[in-house]
Design a protein around this nucleic acid. Sequence first.
RNA 1: CGGGGCGUAGCGCAGCCUGGUAGCGCACACGGUUCGGGACCGUGUUGUCGAAGGUUCAAAUCCUUUCGCCCCGACCA
Length: 558
Amino acid sequence: MHFSKMLIPTLREVPADAEAASHVLMLRAGYVRQLASGLYIYLPLGIRVMEKINRILREEMNAIGAQEITMPVLHPAEVWQETGRWSEIGDEMFRLKDRTGRDMCLGMTHEEIMTWLAVREIRSYRDLPQVWYQIQEKLRDEARPKSGILRTREFLMKDSYSFDADEEGLEKNYKLHADAYHKIFSRCGLDFFMVQSDPGMMGGATSHEFMAPSPAGEDDVVFCDVCGYAANVELALSNPEKIEIMEWEFEDVHTPEKRTVGEVSNFLKLRPEYFIKSLLLISDSGPLLALVRGDQELHEKKVNRIIGKHRPASKEEVREILGVEAGFIGPVNQKLRIIADACLQDGIYVSGANKPHYHSKGIRPGRHFTAEWHDITLAKKGDTCAKCNALIRIERVIEIGNIFMLGTKYSAPLKAFYLDEKGEEKPIIMGSYGIGPARIAAAAIEQNHDKDGIIWPKSIAPFGVEILPLNVKDAGTMKTTERVYNDLTAKGIEVLMDDRDERAGVKFKDADLIGIPIHIIIGEKNLKEGLIEIKDRRTKEIMKVKIEDTIEHIASSW
RNA sequence: CGGGGCGUAGCGCAGCCUGGUAGCGCACACGGUUCGGGACCGUGUUGUCGAAGGUUCAAAUCCUUUCGCCCCGACCA
């Protein structure tokens, strides 16, 4: 491919709207352009990268017996109404009506439609298992598109769905997908790992996410380097730092105008770890008190799993329900249901005395109050592993893939049943598995770039080699360039030739920005000695090689 | 949806506070010199100042409304 014939609009300056490294570099190097918030145009270089990634996806999916099909992006509402998600999902779903007034939506995922197909085409246990996948656009009206192509409103997704007769079948397909995903992300040159995750609105019991470490990510993951425990902080279990137990006697202490843990802690000269933070929550079944240690944060999703939908009470509600101002509430003598973080079972604490401007010191959990004990705090630095007690690590990551065991969540309401060997009707057991190719590309850049530009892993680079003839007006240079270009092309290596009549500096800068892993530099001085240069984009090391040995050198480093 | 920031030439920005003929750099066009890390000199082209309404003799600038984009948070199959 000739550079001069390709649309590669590189930018010298950093676009004002871009923040994340991958976003800045994809714009500057001419891979994408933004149409509107969360909507991107992929330019020729961008398409090449996406196609490289998609090819790897297809190869690995086909290798586990998955079959590619395609699904419409426009869906009738009825299918989504049958599973209840039409009403469960809010503004994130793009909805519209067709000309006859029929409710429609744009597909944000395809469980319903895949199941719809399974309902019609799978009758017998003999038809199972099946794994179907597609690489198609998904549309979601994201509350906040961000970081370039990392979170967009329209995006490509490889989504596969497994259909099995029983749980063992599902587990097998789940494992096959987990293994395939490991291969896919390794082949794409990513640093990644698999963690336990919260199934969220997908439903189902077990799910894992594949995460690529990067400061541009949106999730935090807890790791234990000792036992290997890895989980999204959305559900990660951990033990807060242990504290020395103080043998205080129970007493009420005057704490005028001191309301927050910070204020009381300063006033009494006691570390926040010795406080119980009492929070009044309003759930569907009424008000209740949630207790966490003073240095901990309540984790809403964990609480959600215990009491269902809830919200924090307003200041007025606290006064109405508990009869005291928010800063002075505590667990002692409460008639409300109390859920408390498990770490509070041990120790002696300070908390609100349930009367204005007083706190109680010497509160002994179990004696002065009782509660339902759960892990309801957000895992944080300094906590120890819930499994092996080693110190945990927290890392920021980009979610690049996920796998869910769905069970019968979709097959039951949509009536996707099959007949087993005994002629009994049973629901199909399903799994769903997603990968975002654009996130692979973005994560690859986040993990592989330097101040000069992108450094693509070979497997997903838009071209294998870029040739830089420094002076296109020199006949000798161009003769050698053509020769090398043709030889490499004949070897099946994709080559970008910078045939523009530009100064050498411009070509070097653009080549570094674009990030093709190997550059072949052809200049007049070296040519006189029969040499060309091969440069490694990552290390910037340059090797001078005889013209006739070029192909061999490239091939051997492939 | 809450908080913050920004919309002026293709890109990056100044001008706004204190109203008075819209600027700078890059890019682009032409001429010349240059030619291995985003060259230099000269000449030139490019704008509904996001939009609407208002105040004023006069609005990029002040006021009101509105739209868009970015960041933080909430949310995120």
